[in-house]
């Protein structure tokens, strides 16, 4: 991609994006009743806060314990280099993602009046 194409592609994307967000503002004011704005805002902010402040630190801490701290403890005598064999690490971190996803959906499913 040449410099000019890149510049134009970026300008077009940003302009289209700003346009779409402006349309969102119009819809928010005209298509969503004001009595819903507060709970909308709370859910917008709340889901991110729940992720960034709870879910992510928990997963990062779990990863650190399983992939850094525990192996390091085991191998302290070998110079303290933390090593987890690649397949084990992939299974561990992948397992958290797969099980975490399914757990979240399972929680919604089991709480649902449909179940």
């Amino acid at each position: 991609m040449t410099g000019r194409t890149m510049t134009w592609a970026r300008r077009t994307l940003v302009a289209a994006g700003v346009g779409a967000m402006a349309w969102w503002a119009v819809l928010a004011l005209t298509a969503v009743p004001p009595r819903w704005w507060l709970s909308w805002g709370v859910w917008l902010a709340g889901s991110v806060a729940a992720h960034d402040a709870l879910l992510a630190p928990l997963v990062i801490a779990l990863g650190w314990v399983a992939l850094v701290w525990l192996p390091a403890r085991r191998r302290r005598d070998e110079g303290g280099v933390p090593t987890v064999p690649v397949p084990a690490a992939v299974v561990l971190r992948g397992g958290v993602l797969v099980l975490g996803t399914l757990l979240l959906v399972w929680a919604a499913a089991s709480w649902s009046p449909l179940s």
Partner: peptide, 15 residues
């Protein structure tokens, strides 16, 4: 309404 916010913010972000 939020669909437009996602689309808009995603386009700006990619840009």
């Amino acid at each position: 309404a939020t669909a437009w916010l996602v689309l808009g913010a995603a386009l700006v972000h990619v840009g």
